[in-house]
Amino acid sequence: MSRQKTILFACGTGIATSTAVNVAVTEAMKKRGLTFNAQQAKATEVPGLADSVDFIVATTPISASVTKPVIKGLAFLTGIGKDKVLDEIEAQLRK
């Protein structure tokens, strides 16, 4: 049984689009039988928080100094390419 992973959802304000993405990913992963811990933050806060999470899903650009995997979350706002991004997230959660 592997440890529950933590995803950091990031956007410009840390409350608007990251909330929408967090909810969309949580619902979709539940359907795939996966749960995770969720945190939300402003994009500018990510470098300071990245060490304590497994990976990041962001709707805005994230500093290149962050070494944890960053998955682009815009698909959950536009609806375009959502399944591919969900597969990426699932793969990270199953690692």
Binding site: T19, A20, A24, G79
Partner: peptide, 22 residues
């Protein structure tokens, strides 16, 4: 144009905006 001040209470609002966009 979104005026948001509490993410936990405004999830539905955000979801319905996203549903319209999509």
């Amino acid at each position: 144009l979104l005026a948001i001040n509490d993410k936990d209470k405004q999830i539905e609002a955000l979801q319905s905006v996203m549903a319209t966009i999509q």
